[in-house]
C-alpha cells in the first residue's frame, strides 16, 4: 500500500472495529464477570461492569463439588470423536467429489444438500426411536454417530472446496513423476489440504461441543451427560446457581480456544501459492 493514510479514515476504521468487537465479545465478558462475582453480590451489583469483590470460589466449587469434570470428559470424548470421524469421512468424500466423475454423483450431492434443509426438530423423534430401538440411549457413541451423520454433508462440501482449490496439475505431475494415485494424494495433496482439514476439524469440534438438543434427548443418566446438558443441572427447581454456571461456562471455553490455537496455523491461507502460475 503506497497511498497516504488519512487520519480521519484510520480513526474511523478502528472505531468501527472496536464497536464490532465490543458487541461480539460483550456476552463473553459478562460470562467471565459473573463467574468471578461472589454469590451475594450477583443481584446487588447486577449491572456493574466489574464487581467490587473478586472470587474464584465458583470455579473451585464447580470443579470439586459438582460432576463438572465428568461432563467435561464426556464432551471432550464426543467432540473429538465426532471431529475425527467426520473429518475422515468428509475428506474422502470431498476428494471423490472434487476429482472423480461417477454415476450418481449429482444425485448424491443433491441428497446431501436436502439433508441440510430439514429443521432438526422434525427428525428428533425418529432419531430417538432409532437410537432407543438399538438400545443405544445414554451412550456417548450414539451421540458421535448422530453428530457425525449431521455434520458430514456440510463438512464434505467444505473439504470439496478445499480440494477444488488444489490444481489437478499437481496430482498429474506427481503421477508423471512416478507416484500412484494414492502416493500423489498422500505426498502432494495431503500436505496442501492441512488448512482445510484444520478448518473442518475446528468447525465440527465446536458444533459437537455446544450441541444440546440431541444430547438432551438421548442422554438422561448423569454419568453420560455432556457438558451442555450438565450445565442445565445448575438450574434447580427453585433457583439458578448463576455463579457456578458461568464458571463452568468459562471453563468450557478453554478446550475450544485451545483447539483453535492449535489448528490456527493450518488455517493460514496461501499454502498453495507458487504451485501454478496465478
Amino acid at each position: 500500500m503506497t497511498h497516504s493514510p488519512k487520519p480521519v479514515l484510520a480513526v474511523g476504521k478502528y472505531a468501527a472495529l472496536l464497536a464490532y468487537l465490543s458487541f461480539a465479545l460483550f456476552p463473553l465478558y459478562w460470562l467471565l464477570k459473573i463467574a468471578v462475582t461472589p454469590d451475594q453480590l450477583i443481584y446487588t451489583e447486577g449491572t456493574n461492569l466489574w464487581p467490587s469483590e473478586f472470587t474464584f470460589d465458583n470455579f473451585r466449587s464447580v470443579v470439586f463439588q459438582t460432576d463438572f469434570l465428568s461432563y467435561f470428559g464426556n464432551s471432550l470424548y464426543v467432540s473429538l470423536g465426532t471431529a475425527a470421524v467426520t473429518t475422515l469421512v468428509a475428506a474422502g468424500a470431498g476428494y471423490a467429489f472434487s476429482r472423480f466423475n461417477f454415476a450418481g454423483k449429482r444425485l448424491l450431492i443433491a441428497v446431501m444438500l436436502i439433508t441440510q434443509m430439514f429443521p432438526l426438530l422434525m427428525i428428533i423423534a425418529p432419531i430417538y426411536k432409532i437410537i432407543a430401538g438399538l438400545g443405544m440411549l445414554n451412550s456417548l457413541t450414539s451421540l458421535i454417530v448422530v453428530y457425525t451423520a449431521f455434520n458430514v454433508p456440510f463438512a464434505t462440501f467444505l473439504m470439496q472446496s478445499f480440494f477444488d482449490g488444489i490444481p489437478k496439475d499437481l496430482e498429474e505431475a506427481a503421477m508423471m513423476d512416478g507416484c500412484s494415485r494414492f502416493q500423489a494424494l498422500y505426498k502432494v495433496i495431503f500436505p496442501l489440504t492441512l488448512p482445510g482439514l484444520g478448518a473442518t476439524l475446528g468447525f465440527v469440534f465446536t458444533a459437537a461441543w455446544s450441541e444440546l438438543l440431541f444430547a438432551l434427548m438421548l442422554i438422561s443418566k448423569n454419568e453420560a451427560m455432556t457438558f451442555p446438558v450438565g450445565l442445565l443441572t445448575f438450574v434447580s427447581k427453585f433457583s439458578v446457581d448463576w455463579g457456578q454456571m458461568m464458571a463452568a461456562g468459562v471453563l468450557a471455553l478453554v478446550p475450544s480456544c485451545l483447539f483453535f490455537i492449535f489448528i490456527q496455523r493450518y488455517l493460514v491461507q496461501g499454502l498453495t501459492s507458487g504451485a501454478v502460475k496465478g
Binding site: A173, M176, C179, S273, A275, V276
Partner: peptide, 20 residues
C-alpha cells in the same frame, strides 16, 4: 500402462511445482 510406468516426463503449462 499407468503414467508412472511409461517413463515419460512432462512439463506442464502451469509448471505444477509442489508448493510445499
Amino acid at each position: 500402462v499407468r503414467p508412472r510406468d511409461r517413463d515419460i516426463a512432462m512439463v506442464f503449462q502451469s509448471y505444477a511445482l509442489y508448493p510445499h
